[in-house]
Write a protein that binds this DNA or RNA. Structure first.
Lengths: 150, 150
DNA sequence: GTATATGCAAACTGTTTGCTTTGTT
DNA sequence: AACAAAGCAAACAGTTTGCATATAC
């Protein structure tokens, strides 16, 4: 099961922009479109290059600023997997998920596991923590890279 | 249960240094001493300031370089919790642990949970991943900060 | 004495910001 | 017309590096 891009209506972005009294622009729309369309977990750089091909007049800072806007609007989250650069992914409010990351090819797969979630709550109780969110990342070799290994 | 600093023999560092044909120095020893002595999960900056008080002639880059050396020697690991700066902690080879992080006061508590570990392996199997390592961080409010909240 | 360690300043990377110009409403 | 967006360059934070000097062996 690969990552599927779920429908995240760009209308939500429009709503947010309006509610904030901000303005729409071609470039913003282009960035949001790419962001939603492309496979998940893009780094800013990847997204920038991608966009650059069809919209060469868009600058780096605009990409950053728009992604930040998406995060503010709670339509995206920022993550860092090992490497130093930030990766953004659309939020699907109903569903939380964690990540499998291939340390060879960089592939990122999402998964969920209710049992793990429950055990985390249990850990929280044990230490008197009120757990708000968590991060679980499993690093290893994906099926393809395992085959190549030997 | 607070983080306890377990005995991590600085002799291992000595061994590593020798094996690599590198040299000992007062400063290195001082840094390693502080690193092992102080509570875990120090940022470079925290460690630097700490050391500076008794060894004001030690520079930032030396701290970095020595920490890197510790990582190379597999005596420390580098982590990033949300904030941008790296934190280092001694490795205790026999034992893997995860972290509870208080989003109010920044307190970091270590924990282990075998059941979660097992479930992670299960997830790996499901997706045909060979899991090498993982990162689990639970963010929330610690007991002290929960009380203060209301 | 030779080679490594260190300090300093400078380089570097990813990200953010200030300012002027351009675009949206 | 008014005000936000975008581009560019410059600022920034954390980290790394080059080089001359100090230190360890």
């Amino acid at each position: 099961m690969k990552c599927k891009v779920k429908k995240l209506d760009s209308r939500k972005f429009t709503d947010y922009i309006r509610a904030k009294g901000l303005k729409h622009s071609k470039k913003r729309r282009a960035i949001v479109k790419f962001f939603l369309k492309k496979d998940l977990h893009l780094s800013v750089d990847e997204l920038y290059r991608e966009i650059k091909e069809t919209n060469p007049e868009i600058g780096y800072s605009t990409v950053y600023r728009t992604l930040k806007l998406l995060v503010d609007a709670r339509l995206a989250t920022e993550r860092k997997f090992g490497d130093k650069s930030a990766r953004f992914e659309p939020i699907h409010p109903e569903e939380h998920h964690d990540h499998l990351i291939c340390i060879k090819c960089g592939r990122i797969i999402e998964f969920t596991n209710d049992q793990i979630e429950k055990l985390q709550q249990q850990v929280g109780r044990k230490y008197n923590f009120r757990i708000i969110r968590h991060k679980l990342e499993l690093y290893g070799y994906c099926d393809k890279c395992r085959k190549k290994e030997r």
